[in-house]
Nucleic acid binder design. Structure first.
Lengths: 309, 309
DNA sequence: ATTAATCATGACTGTGGAGTCAGGTATCCT
DNA sequence: AGGATACCTGACTCCACAGTCATGATTAAT
């Protein structure tokens, strides 16, 4: 019976919350940065929960802490429960729900942010939180409910299900005309020999896109030594826009570039590298939070529409 | 964000539990019988929760209390959450889960109890709790998770889904041979004229079975005045077994009756009244608790097998 | 009108647990 | 080796909340 839960002490919402915070942050220290008192408290709360449940919820792994199998399950359970309570509270108080949407930094900036008002509208005025993550960890975040929705490359999603296509991405070579001879054409721009002489900006985030560009250059025979190596594609675009250098930008990144000032042409070596960007969700999570598959497909369409505007 | 839940006080597991107890019992008084102190506490806990959520969870209905729409939802939510926590605890502690199985009193006695060991075995050694309910309220109990499984007449289940057939029930006229002339046959027993002269025992629980029997007698032209009117069919069977009177028993109730002492024959007026007994469950609830549809169908088969033994 | 339920409220006490501080230990980095 | 980092532990304080009792308000049953 449920009353067994209360027959012995050691269980409280605060403890569950403390444990969940540690689970989300990945370590106690990150869960309470700069607050050593709270750290010791979370440590104790976890120990008390472990006593209550009679199981190790955590495993020492080096000098840091990670979750055991049981801990993973409990963390998932607690997040769902607290979120259900919070949704109930918000609904009763007449407040909008809030959804967390994750994507890479450039996708957020170029695609998601412009679409946020329309998304919120379709979700009944929901509050939206954007979170920047790497593709890899986004899948995990969706799986265990830290992120409600993700915009992510299709190949980074374990299964093809629970996704709706948003757009296909291609790569474009963008060269400020100031760096070219007067009257240069797209044909001129397609020459690797030219690329070798140009100053380039490139990402250096170690992500798939970054790697692909570098490999493509290599196999085109270019000794690719970008003058600027940036932490994100956003910075690459800025440099291109300034006319400081050339760059390879994904479809999303060329919107708003002035074709009079920048020559934009498909980047041939990555012509077949086009990847689909999809909206990804956790079906169980979405069902709990009141979104049907049809809502999600509509959301994907809304985001895709953003590109046409 | 989930942290909003903790930004203001007034939420605690104890309060949620107090509210849920009231919700299950139907009133504060029933939730804490004979404990006026606990009563006042639950009353206060509910008020504090209402303040926390900013909603009325209860409605005064006469001198007693009932749940509002929001209250119903919250109660359902809390029961699920506490049960999930309890399941987690049990699992981690290596203890078996516990399941609540509901049915009518006679079904429990005649069908369910003999099958309990096999059911427990199939559920991995689960602890089983039987609960006697009327058909009508069983449906509700399954719907909101107070009862995990129910054995119930098919026509008492709102939708045909979420059920598996256990058996078909028919009605049998059972007459102690001591009340008949020596050498009486089944044919003799089928005469309404005889019925009129026999002492009968009948249920008087106002249930569908009871009503059907009385109506059938009436339309057979019998002025049906049972000598014994019993609260349950169990008592009817006892009286028949004692040889004190005749009775109409469902298929389940004739097992173990000594045919040498009791003449058992189909009760013709209710020949087409046969009703299916099904195992009924709440799919959402069962998914949460780790039972698949296939498990449940197997359970129904296990219970059905009980009849052959 | 009287009585009995049922729930609500106020005024407490006691306690479990959150919050805080001060070390202590193990591990990693250089 | 020395220092930084991350976690654990013990010893407290303080408070929110469970627990208890007495009483009042409303409604139902007789």
């Amino acid at each position: 019976m449920i009353n067994d839960l209360f027959s012995k002490g050691g269980l409280s919402l605060d403890r569950l919350r403390g444990f969940m915070q540690m689970a989300e942050a990945g370590s106690i220290a990150k869960a309470a940065p700069g607050k050593p008192n709270r750290q010791s408290q979370i440590s104790r709360q976890i120990r008390e929960l472990e006593q209550f449940f009679g199981t190790e919820l955590t495993r020492r792994k080096g000098k840091t802490l990670s979750l055991s199998i049981a801990g993973e399950r409990l963390a998932l359970l607690i997040r769902e429960q607290l979120q259900d309570l919070e949704d109930f509270r918000k609904e009763q108080a007449g407040l909008p729900k809030s959804f967390v949407i994750g994507a890479g930094a450039s996708v957020i900036e170029w695609l998601l942010v412009p679409a946020l008002p329309a998304i919120s509208r379709h979700l009944g005025g929901a509050t939206l939180l954007t979170e920047s993550h790497r593709s890899r960890s986004l899948g995990d975040a969706v799986r265990d409910g830290r992120v409600d929705l993700a915009i992510i490359r299709q190949d980074a999603v374990p299964t093809g299900a629970n996704t709706a296509l948003v757009m296909k991405m291609r790569f474009h070579l963008c060269i400020p005309r100031a760096l070219l001879k007067r009257g240069a054409t797209e044909r001129d721009a397609a020459s690797p020999a030219l690329w070798q002489t140009l100053a380039f900006a490139a990402g250096r985030d170690g992500g798939q896109t970054d790697t692909a560009v570098r490999e493509a250059m290599q196999s085109a025979g270019v000794d690719f030594r970008p003058r600027f190596e940036c932490g994100s594609m956003l910075q690459v675009r800025q440099l291109v826009e300034l006319g400081a250098c050339a760059g390879i930008l994904p479809t999303l990144g060329i919107r708003g570039l002035d074709e009079k000032k920048v020559l934009i042409t498909p980047f041939a070596p990555l012509r077949d590298f086009g990847r689909a960007l999809v909206l990804h969700w956790n079906p169980r999570q979405m069902r709990r939070r009141g979104l049907e598959t049809s809502d999600l497909k509509k959301l994907a369409a809304i985001i895709a529409d953003q590109l046409k505007a």
